[in-house]
Amino acid sequence: MNGDNPMHAVVAIKQVPDTSNVRIDPETGTLIREGVPAIVNPYDIHAVEAAVQLKERLGGGKVTVITMGPPKAAEALLECVEQGADRAILITDRKFGGADTLATSYVLARAIEVINAELPVDIIFFGKQAIDGDTAQVGPGVATRLNIPLITYAVAIEEFDLAARRAVVHRRVEQGIEVLETTLPVLLTVEKEIAPVRHAPLPRLIAAARYKPEVWTATAPVPFDPQQIGLKGSPTVVGKAYTPSPRSGGEVISVAALGLDAVVARAMAVIEQAHVRNLQPGTGVVS
């Protein structure tokens, strides 16, 4: 796509409820959503940071941040502008509501195609997953739709050669770190290590305060295929939702009431019940 132009990175982010604040109403067993703050998905903050740091490393370029979400998600985009993003696009429309990962990846991929037609894109960043759904599917879906290489769980960009159209990226796998060479453009889903988050300098905070994200709807400026968005474009539906019934517990005994010896005897009985086999005295070897 690119050649002589400065680097262009696109970062896709999501505004999520802070799940550490989600609580269950003990009376009704339902979710209490009121007052749950919305935050930028933690991995996405690092994705933005990685794009901004890449721009600095290359001595210039442009970072475009996009999100699909409710109008309120504009707040999340402004945080990204504070971090150093140059352009922010909010893709919002009731028609996008109820989108599953397939429909979401369609919208983001289509938006990136349009952005790319204006200014060729060299690299796309996603957080490795969103903490509200934890699916980790949208990044891979977008790479597949754009037919570009995908590198998930990226932890470092070792080399980035715009002119030669290649990059060397480290990704975390079960066996260790895989070092991959890829052609550009490439899509990365990133771990937090990819770039530590820095404090935004004051001029950026001021610039962000004045910034107004562009708003794209389902029809303008990009006509999205109505068959592929929202509920219509989503093969999966939620059949039912319920609060998990906990596994039932057994007895609770206390050292204060029974004394240490009695408690340990009961604990030993339970350990034996677990059928931990062939316990050798002293060696701790289980065969």
Binding site: G249, V255, L260, V264, A267
Partner: peptide
């Protein structure tokens, strides 16, 4: 304790050493 097969209300620094002795001695 709601899901434990057996729950012990006590200080782990008291219970675990006693368990270690018991398991090793067994």
């Amino acid at each position: 304790f709601q899901i434990a097969t057996l729950g012990i209300v006590g200080d782990l620094y008291e219970v675990i050493p006693a368990l270690i002795r018991e398991v090793k001695g067994q």
